[in-house]
Nucleic acid binder design. Structure first.
Lengths: 194, 194, 194, 194
DNA sequence: CATGAATGAGGGTTCATTCAT
DNA sequence: TATGAATGAACCCTCATTCAT
């Protein structure tokens, strides 16, 4: 593992835990075992370091969602929707710090980077929303989902995702997995066709 | 409005937007129209200022939820559960910055205050959870809610709350109000007794 | 005891322990039970407060030495010289903080007050030196002290005083009293006429 | 001379003259020709800078005394005791500021460093006391010193040292040298065997 | 690629002091 | 006489960054 990669890896966990402003470069380099100016051999500034990590995280996030969707191509609508949740979260649960970094960057971006970051979020979200809409529509058409306004269903699903997202902060992996299952059952019985 | 209160008010919006580490006292005092050391006439430190605001926000949050619960004492179980959501969120929507402050402090507490903050969160949450449990139990006993493990129902409701909480970031008041209503319908039809 | 006097008393112990620069007014007023600006009701500045205490201490020091000299008017030369040491030090031992204040002000005066302080030291010292010289001369003339250059004897006596002064820092009252006696015996046998 | 050493050298004279609390880092760095944060490239804090200087001074003090003792190994007991005084003081006289620093740190240590400093003093003093005791005992055994309680003799010698120490503040080198000699003669004739 | 030295800017905090009350 | 509010100056220290090596 190169110094550059070590810096990025360590920086990510620090930015996740302490935020951009709350993390001095010295905290990162100290853990890497290198002096602070070493950062400037690879990154133009602290901002660039952050941005570089951010791009990686975004890419990973995007791929994990995409993968989850593709893995679930062959089940019932319920299974496939559930798989989206499960897929995204198994990834996140196994990359906890990356997830926290992502969420933090999304919800509370460092002031000087705000614009750049917000720009980049839309894309991934768009892809995800599209896929969910497709599934919900299919569900309605095949009758497994109640015939309500599609937007309401989408809102509900996204709300569910957000709630589950937040709850990852409170529970450990095992508990979380179970809760995820239970909550999904509840939600499904709310939208399932009668 | 006293200087002390001005400082707290301005500080809250700054802490909400920029976070604890991202907000120098000078940014606050400059907006208040006072020099930085003036803060120390009222608060022992930056931490204490933050904590003082935090206590207020927590208290307000607590009261708004409590009020909502009490206002709905005479309705059906569904109405009362919904009222908990609505009450909390009408308050939060009309106090946007306070809500952001609250959420940020909860999700990403400044490192040196983490312990103190988490402690205080527990108490408020506990009260809320207690009330919800009571309502859910009553709902099951009267048959308006399906007879499932009470914990699953609670998890679902809390997940819903969290999700709605997060979504407040994306939508404006009007849209949010509507979404809240729709999502609730979805959720309720998932747990309602058949 | 008036507030003014309380301030002076408390300030003296603080200046003695922590020095002028090491003692904030707040430390003094806190112990007195008053707010800091109260000092300015009685003293024009921190410097003036210090100077006011200094004058008192100097006066007390002067009187204690004078008293010791007068009390010993009727003994042998040895008794009277010893009395000067004993008198000065019984006073100092029973006013420990005042002594420390005095010594500190003398040896390491606060920079902005240096000139004023040094000016005032000479007087007291002069009186003391005069009296000692008189006694030593009398001792030589009466043969109880060896006939050496008077200045050497004076230097020896002053060196003894200084040494004893310093040693007050190390020992408690009882031990000190005994050491004083022993050391005097040694010194006297060094200058006594044979 | 490295910047680090320059800082230490300049700091020592400032701490000697103005004391720890009375010397801002800026005063030191300004004289060195460097900005204040440069101090932190070499020392962790103002306290550490002080401590670092203190260790040097202590070591020098220790060595100078030790050297004086060893240089005088071949003389009479009187010569060797005198040499301890002379050796220590020729060093101190030629390193005036170091001496003032030493004395100030010993008598009025900066409050936050008091414990650490006092601890370190004991060690050096212990070595010195041991050597003096050996010499005094030898003197008694060979009859050149009167047979008194050894502790009284030690107290007297230490009191003499302290007195001479204090007097260094008042006189210049030449005068001091002469006084040292005279006072020693006096002291020696007080303890010398008859 | 990485360091040690150094800096400019700024951060939180303390402190003596002022002033209206 | 004494206070609470407020300030200007200064202090110690941190941090991102530069640069010669």
């Amino acid at each position: 593992m190169t110094t550059r990669d070590k810096i990025k890896a360590v920086a990510m966990t620090h930015f996740a835990k302490g935020g951009y402003e709350g993390t001095p470069l010295s905290a990162i380099t100290k853990e890497v075992g290198v002096t602070t100016p070493a950062v400037y051999a690879f990154f133009g500034s602290k901002e660039e370091l952050f941005l570089s990590i951010f791009e990686d995280v975004l890419k990973n996030h995007y791929h994990s969602v995409k993968e989850a969707i593709e893995e679930a191509k062959s089940g019932t609508v319920e299974q496939r929707l559930y798989q989206i949740l499960r897929g995204a979260f198994t990834y996140h649960v196994s990359h906890e710090e990356e997830t926290i970094f992502y969420k933090r960057a999304m919800m509370f971006p460092p002031a000087p980077l705000e614009d750049k970051l917000k720009e980049r979020f839309g894309e991934t979200e768009g892809m995800l929303t599209g896929e969910i809409l497709t599934l919900l529509t299919e569900g309605i058409e095949t009758g497994v989902i109640d015939d309500r306004p599609i937007e309401d269903l989408l809102d509900g699903f996204l709300c569910l995702m957000d709630g589950l997202f937040l709850q990852m902060f409170y529970y450990d992996e095992k508990k979380y997995e179970q809760k995820l299952h239970n909550i999904w059952k509840l939600f499904w019985s709310g939208i399932a066709g009668s």
